[in-house]
């Protein structure tokens, strides 16, 4: 049993009962793909909607929305999940400051993540996204339940 911190731009998958995946999200998006029947879950901590700089590295598997979702999907299947058993939950994508340019990253991250999930036929069954507050999320790998907590201590489970 371990608490696995999914850092910005990273991606982690686990199927060990008791493992918890966690991330602190502002405008970043936490994409959870899980297979409750198999007790398997993976989360990507998506930073950006797409790569603009052609020389930017793709070393961070969770950094850009589309490659992150594809990689998460591939890894879930690689560990034995069937596509039909997969579901997704989303968190993050907040607008942290009321600056006109900054606000777009969170929204655009969400848009691209949804697009990628849709292409793969993975349904988003629950989400806590957008708004103006950061979120601290933790996911129970065995069940895919996601706890979402804000800075004021308000907590919800989705």
């Amino acid at each position: 049993m371990a608490r696995i911190v999914v850092k910005m731009g990273e991606l982690e998958v686990s199927d060990r009962a008791g493992d918890i995946l966690t991330a602190i999200l502002g405008s970043c998006v936490g994409v959870l793909i899980y297979d409750a029947g198999a007790g398997r879950a993976g989360m990507a901590h998506v930073m950006l909607p797409e790569r603009i700089d052609p020389n930017a590295s793709l070393d961070k598997r969770g950094k850009y929305a589309i490659p992150a979702v594809k990689e998460l999907y591939r890894e879930m299947l690689g560990r034995g999940s069937k596509p039909a058993a997969l579901a997704a939950k989303l968190s993050g994508g907040a607008r942290m400051f009321s600056d006109n340019n900054l606000q777009n990253i969170g929204e655009r991250n969400l848009e691209m993540v949804r697009y990628a999930l849709g292409k793969l036929g993975i349904k988003v069954v629950a989400e806590r996204t957008g708004g103006f507050k950061g979120r601290n999320v933790s996911v129970d790998v065995a069940t895919g339940r996601m706890k979402v907590r804000d800075a004021d201590g308000k907590e919800e489970i989705i």
Partner: peptide
């Protein structure tokens, strides 16, 4: 500086959101 905006929130949520703005070209 452009006009400032202010918020109270988790340190990582604030700092990481600002860093996103410069993160495309490097890790």
């Amino acid at each position: 500086p452009a006009p400032p905006t202010c918020t109270a929130d988790m340190l990582a949520a604030i700092v990481n959101t600002i860093l996103l703005e410069v993160s495309d070209s490097g890790d």
